[in-house]
Every structure is written in C-alpha cells, then in structure tokens.
Simulated assay, not measured.
Amino acid sequence: MSRFLFVVPPLAGHVNAAGAVARALLARGHDVAWVGPESALRRLLGDGVTVYPTGMRPYGGQRDRGARALRSLWEGFVLPFARFTRPAVARAVAAYRPDVVAVDQHALAGALVATAAGLPWASLAPQSMELTEPLRALPRVDAWIRANLAAMWCEAGLPAEEYVDPRFSPHLVLGFTTPALTGPAPFPPHYALVGPALDHDRPDEPDFPWAALDPRRRLVLVTMGTLAEDVARDFYPRLVAALAPLGDRVQAVIAAAPHTVPDPPPHVLVVPRAPVLELLPRVGAVICHAGLNTVCEALAYGIPLVMAPIKHDQPVTAAQVVAAGAGVRVRFGRSRPAELRAALTEVLDSPPYRAAAARVAESFAAAGGAAAAAIHLERLATS
C-alpha cells in the first residue's frame, strides 16, 4: 500500500477530477489524504476523507476577459493561494509522510513542498492551455508568470540552479484529455493523457426535478461554469431568446442562479446546480463555456457542443473541439439570439457532429480515465 497526498484548489472542476482518481486509488488498496480549504473539500468529497486544512482567505475577483483575465487569475488567486497554503502543505507532508504528492497545476505549493522534501510528485492538468499550449499566444503574460514562478521557487528556499516549473512535474503529468481532442501535440514521455476522470459517486450532487423532463423533446443542457455568474448575466437573456421559439422540439436545463435568467419560457428549466453526469445520458446537446471538465464530460457521452468561451483556457479547448468536428463555437459577448439558435439546431440536426463526438468518446474510454491515472500514480510511488 502507498500513501498519496492530493493538493488541490477549492474549485469544483479541479476537485471532481482529482476525487475520481483518489477513489480509484482507494479501490486499489492505497491510502489517500488531501490538503486544502477543509469546508470546500468536505463539501465536494464527503465527510469520510482525511483533510489537512489550509484555511481560506479572500482572493481577487475574475471579471476580466482575454489576456487580462489570465493575468488576474494568477495575480489574484494562483500565486497568493500558493504562498498562503505552502506552510500548511509542508505541515501535511511532515505529518502524513506520503509516497507521492499529486498536485493540481493551480495548487503550486504542493510542487514546491514535495521538491523540498525530496518526494516524487505528479502534476494534475485539469485545463487545456498549459497542457498543450503553454501560453505561446500571450508571450508577455507567459514571461510574467514564469518570472513569478521562479521567484516563488527561491522564496521556498529551493536552489535557483535546480529550478523546475512547478506546473509541470518532471516525474509525471496527468492530462484529463486525449490526442483525439488535443490533436497530435508532441508530449514528453512522462505525460499521460488518460481522458476525463469521471465518477458518478460525487457526494455533492444536488437534488433535481426529474419529473419535469419531457421525453418527447430533445434535451439541451446549459452550463457556463461555477465562476461565470457575474459575466454571464448578459449571455443568459440572449440564450433564452434563442431557445424561446424551439419549445415544440427542445427542452433546456440551465444550471445558473435563477435571478440571472429572467423570465424563462415553460420549456426552459432553471436550476441552481445540475447533476451533470446523471443528466448527460438523456442530453442531445450541451451549451457551455468550453471549460475542459464540461467539454470532456459531454464528449465522454458522445454529445456535441455549442461553446461560448469566456476566458483562460476556454478558447483553446473550444478550438480543439471545433477541429475535432464535435461542436460549434459562438461569441460569448456578441452572439445574437438568431446565431445561438442556428448553432444549436446545427449540432442537434447534423449527424457529423454526433459522429465526431462519438469518436472522441471512444478515445476517452480507451485511455482509461481515473483508473488509468491511478495506475500511473501507483507506478510513480513504486519506481
């Protein structure tokens, strides 16, 4: 039996993927513990997990778009989260004595502490941009991030001449996608693309009004991510206007705060949160922000997408889906109702989109998902 310590940020998409891998490790007889904000992790993982708490502090908002959004993500969250949690991560490593530390790319303290302790560590890459395109399109932001990472390395007392980018483990990088989506990028040998890590036993799944679903209509799921409420307020009215004339053939479920979706027609159901994995077998199309978790969950079920990317890695992921033939990209800020409606009917009615989504789904199944990720971590622990 080996001991694995997961270091993750308190973000559902990141924790859900890591949680699926952790449960696969537990099923193989290993021991697992977590480092992070305790209340958030227990809500997402359940009360039965071992959590070494880091505490939580306010972080900067995420209203920016484009290059400014990426820099604000790092400046307002990723870097201060790493500095704030590093002492707690060090205490957890000393107390738990793991064989391997599994580190989300946005929880950099895990990489710094594991390196200082001489422990093997694996990077968990829950997004597209830094796995496949390390910010080449934004050289100034890339240079700024790299300079801050190098400074943080030295702040942790690590020798400058031994610097390793803490986003990318030299031992193992786990990507929750496959080349069917990323394209034929030349990944190093220690990169393992295992496909999405899905687990239907998520403890935090919400209640849902299943009786309200109409089997005579094509079901469309709309989810713009957990952090998009402020910036999506203008998008939802345009989307509702796009859906309004489709009531004879489409039923939509929008996962959003009800006050952000004004006056939905009867065939549009608005819920604060949706049990996505339970809904997907019934869904004909997904409208989303092109977050990698949502995209891969949909494609794992062979469901085509309409994507309105907002920021961060989402344009990269949307471009990958379009290149794979499994979806359509629309403009988040400027698409009018007619354009949104045309995109939705195109993916619903054109068989090539579903066929392409099915090909990606086959690649995901072959890659192995959470079970394959657990095997790679197991090998790292015994190497």
Rank of each mutant, 00 (worst) to 15 (best):
M1N: 09
S2F: 04
S2A: 15
R3T: 07
F4Y: 14
L5Q: 08
P9L: 13
V15N: 02
N16I: 14
N16L: 15
A22T: 04
D31I: 08
V35D: 03
E38T: 03
S39K: 14
T50F: 00
P53I: 11
R57K: 10
G60F: 11
Q62W: 09
R65G: 05
A67D: 08
E75K: 05
F77G: 00
F84M: 01
A88C: 13
A90D: 12
R91Y: 03
A92P: 05
A94W: 08
A94Q: 10
Y96V: 12
P98S: 11
D99T: 12
V101M: 12
G110Y: 01
A111R: 10
L112A: 07
A117E: 11
A117W: 13
M129A: 15
E130A: 13
R136D: 11
P139W: 10
N148T: 05
M152T: 15
W153Y: 08
E155P: 07
L158K: 02
P159N: 05
A160H: 15
E161I: 09
E162T: 04
V164N: 04
V164G: 08
V164F: 01
P170K: 06
P170Y: 10
L172M: 05
F176S: 00
T177L: 12
G183V: 08
A185Y: 11
P188R: 12
L193G: 02
V194I: 13
A197F: 04
D199R: 00
R202K: 06
D204W: 08
E205M: 09
D207E: 14
A212H: 09
P215Q: 00
R216W: 01
R216L: 01
L221F: 09
V231Y: 01
F235K: 05
V240H: 06
A244T: 10
P245T: 15
L246P: 00
G247K: 14
V250A: 07
V250T: 04
V253M: 13
V253R: 07
I254R: 11
I254T: 10
A256H: 11
P262A: 15
H267V: 11
V268R: 06
V270N: 00
V271R: 14
P275N: 15
P275V: 15
V276D: 03
L277M: 06
V286K: 07
H289L: 03
E297C: 03
Y301I: 01
V306G: 07
V316F: 13
V316I: 10
T317K: 08
T317F: 09
A318I: 09
A319W: 04
Q320A: 10
V322A: 15
G325R: 07
G325I: 06
G325K: 07
F332C: 09
G333F: 13
E339K: 00
A342M: 02
S350N: 13
S350I: 02
S350W: 01
A355K: 13
A357Y: 09
E362R: 15
S363C: 00
A367D: 04
A367K: 02
H376L: 01
